[in-house]
Design a protein around this nucleic acid. Structure first.
Lengths: 269, 269
DNA sequence: AAGTGGTCTAGACCACTCT
DNA sequence: GAGTGGTCTAGACCACTTG
């Protein structure tokens, strides 16, 4: 007679879970209302957050993971499916499954929503115009959930087709970005988020943005070569890493005279 | 000896497909690079577009669909999975799988991205201030891909907490909205998109929006009780139905002094 | 109790990639 | 050819809903 695994029963399930403990610390706090494939997903995420598999590297083959987690191929694939859908892993048929990187051409524009009026996107030219380490302001503390800590604050001006279009005022917690300097920011070869990943091991998974229309004050008018009072698109962004941990807070001001912010909505709210 | 279905071989596959032809016309034009579950998904979509199963109704049980399409439960579920992920179907454990509706409370805010500064959303009060049938302008023709046709144009003013905040200038093709009148727009009980669905059989599946900051002209200043030149968020939206067919083109102007436009990005660009 | 969707299994064969 | 992910099967048991 066959003995079936009873995935919805906590007792039978936790015994399965225990076998996986050697991989990473077992954390009971997040083990509520779980199913086998969710549990597998959580393990993979934890391994990623711990740097067990690094961006660009392949993770073990599906069959290997089935043995490692003691689940069937169907269950394993359902877990991986979700991670692929969330852009955390990338599958290449015949090659393997890889941890997503941010420095690839195609990923370049993932979180860069500014386009020309015809919908095409161009590479921005970038200039760092300010850099400082200071105590976090109340707004930054709130957004980054890092009370009482210090932060790095720096400002980039992005130009498209030779004209300045965007001013980014960026704040990151110093505890996560140990060793960040002006030189590091100037010498990076790729995008800012690829620098975060390669240099500091921080992967940006998700962003939330709030948009408003404002009038240019003296500073923005100067930086963007506009008249004071000209309409600007203000974008306030919080960028999140694997555990929904906020790691960057930025305010962008965009001259939308010749460019647009592109948004889409299809899947759930 | 067992005979396996060879899903990737066209000859074996098309014989399977033929069995389904009684349901709807077989269309060879879209049968390229297909897999079994994609084919099943396409059949379901076609049935939905044909009105075979209507919004709010349950579609046949998974086991029934397995027999109908002659596929296994795993394949059937993979097809339905994608339709659920795209918000076209909704599954309720123990009850059935239903065609998505737009008039439910929870769906109310799906395409309504304007929120208070604290992130909460409120029901807008709505006033119809203009309605006309006219020849489509060049911009509307381009966005709606309906050359030479007539359109309905109407304008709504949306108020939040008693103050006017948004002006929506909306254009829809008359061929799809036969019988649209001012009275129909005034007497609708739910959202505009639920009216589209219930009254005209048009389901909005996806929207694309482009955002800019502009200065209020005399019309918007008047409607939104602002000074001329005040910064406004301009949102240009195209709304799409099942076959990626554009069915609505609207330009919104939003006073973001006390409200924000919320955007998110996580899944693929 | 009957019917529905949700999860899981164990294994098959296919298409693709790399060596 | 060996190894990878991609698709598909046939059936099991579970949790939930409704009569």
């Amino acid at each position: 007679m066959r003995i079936f695994c009873t995935p919805h029963s906590r007792s039978a399930h936790s015994s399965t879970s225990r076998q996986l403990t050697n991989m990473l610390e077992f954390d009971h706090s997040t083990t509520v209302g779980t199913t086998l494939y969710k549990e597998v997903k959580r393990r993979v995420l934890r391994a990623l957050a711990a740097g067990e598999w690094k961006p660009g590297e392949a993770i073990p083959a599906e069959k290997k993971l089935c043995e490692l987690f003691s689940v069937s191929i169907g269950t394993l694939r359902k877990a991986i499916d979700e991670l692929v859908a969330e852009n955390i892993l990338i599958r290449h048929q015949g090659r393997g499954t890889f941890v997503s990187m941010h420095n690839r051409e195609q990923q370049m524009f993932r979180f860069f929503n500014v386009a020309n009026h015809d919908g095409t996107k161009s590479y921005p030219h970038l200039e760092l115009i300010a850099f400082a380490k200071k105590k976090a302001g109340t707004l930054a503390v709130q957004k980054l959930r890092q009370p009482g800590s210090k932060v790095y604050e720096f400002t980039n001006v992005l130009s498209l087709q030779g004209a300045p279009v965007i001013v980014d005022d960026i704040t990151v917690p110093d505890l996560l970005f140990v060793g960040l300097t002006e030189a590091v920011l100037r010498n990076r070869p790729n995008t800012l988020y690829s620098l975060y990943q390669v240099r500091f091991g921080i992967s940006i998974i998700r962003i939330e943005e709030r948009l408003r229309a404002v009038s240019a004050d003296a500073r923005y008018a100067d930086l963007l070569h506009l008249a004071i009072g000209a309409p600007l698109l203000e974008v306030r962004r919080v960028a999140y890493s694997y555990d929904d941990q906020p790691v960057e807070w930025r305010i962008s001001h965009i001259n939308t005279e010749h460019h647009e912010y592109m948004a889409q909505a299809a899947h759930y709210s």
